[in-house]
């Protein structure tokens, strides 16, 4: 178990190093750089800026300096937010994205399991048909559409009641979180519902369920201990990457609901070619993803003892 964990951790570190290196060179090879702006600057100002940010050195030298700084935990200073440390940007804005993400994952996970189980129980009957229709919608409608519709619904709801039932946008209280996190989790919830449904259906016809029925176990026991517990395994597997995807993919939701999360820095940095922020957020999110995958693998062994960790 410990050996396995250690091995995974080392693999993870190599993965993160690879992500950092690939991003660094890809970023330096696209046309343009963070110093180009709407107003052209003279050669002299440009030279000053390059010297200030160390961009006048050869790329491989910049790479070594940058890697050295990362090892010390210093992601540098943003090019667009000229006086802000990338570390500060991550520290201030990641918690917001994380809170939104955790809630979205919980919505998605619990919702996916419950709806999936329900559709499997009532397969080919009305609840199944309705829910599976919604699931298809949830998977195929992009989040910016869902976010916009959800927000418009909130506006109309508040208008209908004549007072603010739920805030339309903003951040800070419990009520600000509810709708954005549901919107953020919707796609994953739909995906998990489908996964849970098929996994339940597969298990219903398996031998051990027949055995359980034959030996006269009460239906609730069969359902909970044998069906649900086994059917949930594939859901757990995809949950790890889902957490990372949801937490990093909040850009649209953060923009529409004016939420001060890290997602918009992540996307805007790419548009602005803000080297330090691109590197900082990519390495950070990469590490986060790797960590989540390891955690899920360890959890897997705990939920299903048949899985050997080695």
């Amino acid at each position: 178990m410990w050996r396995y964990t250690l091995k995974r951790l080392i693999q993870g570190i190599i993965t993160i190093w690879f992500i950092a290196t690939a991003t660094f060179f890809a970023m330096h090879n696209v046309p343009g750089d963070p110093l180009i702006n709407d107003r052209s600057v003279t050669e002299d100002i440009r030279a000053n800026l390059e010297a200030k940010y160390g961009l006048n050195r050869p790329t491989h030298e910049q790479y070594l300096i940058y890697m050295g700084n990362i090892l010390r935990g210093d992601f540098g200073i943003s090019f667009t937010q000229k006086n802000r440390m990338v570390n500060d940007i991550i520290r201030e804005h990641f918690p917001v994205s994380a809170i939104l993400g955790i809630l979205a994952v919980v919505f998605a996970g619990l919702g996916g399991v419950l709806w999936g189980a329900l559709t499997a129980l009532y397969r080919n009957r009305l609840p199944d048909v309705i829910i599976m229709f919604l699931v298809i919608l949830g998977i195929s409608v992009p989040s910016f559409v869902v976010a916009a519709i959800a927000q418009l619904t909130l506006v109309n709801l508040n208008d209908l009641f004549g007072f603010s039932v739920l805030p339309v946008a903003g951040w800070g209280t419990l009520w600000h979180m509810l709708v954005p996190s549901m919107v953020l989790g919707l796609g994953t919830m739909a995906y998990l519902t489908r996964l849970m449904r098929s996994s339940m259906l597969e298990i219903v016809n398996s031998d051990f369920i027949r055995t359980a029925k034959a030996k006269g176990l009460p239906p609730t026991r069969i359902f909970t201990t044998h069906q649900l517990r086994n059917a949930i395994l594939p859901v757990i597997t995809v949950l790890g990457p889902s957490i990372a995807a949801i937490t990093t993919g909040g850009f649209v939701v953060e923009l529409v609901f004016a939420i001060p999360g890290l997602g918009r820095y992540f996307v805007q940095a790419v548009q602005q070619l803000d080297y330090t922020v691109i590197m900082g957020t990519t390495v950070f999110y990469g590490a986060f993803l790797v960590f989540m995958v390891i955690v899920v693998d360890l959890l897997y062994g705990w939920i299903d003892p048949r899985v050997r960790l080695e």
């Binding site: 201030e92 804005h93 918690p95 917001v96 809170i99 955790i102 809630l103 919980v106 919505f107 619990l110 419950l114 805030p167 946008a169 903003g170 951040w171 800070g172 209280t173 419990l174 600000h176 979180m177 509810l178 004016a258 001060p260």
Partner: peptide, 28 residues
């Protein structure tokens, strides 16, 4: 489902408290 909703409600209260610590409030 009932337990799930209760759990989510509890979690939200906790997260709201956590987010008040980050101080990033806006709007209202």
């Amino acid at each position: 489902a009932f337990f799930a909703i209760a759990g989510i409600a509890l979690l939200m209260v906790g997260l709201a408290w956590a987010s008040s610590l980050t101080g990033a409030a806006s709007g209202g």
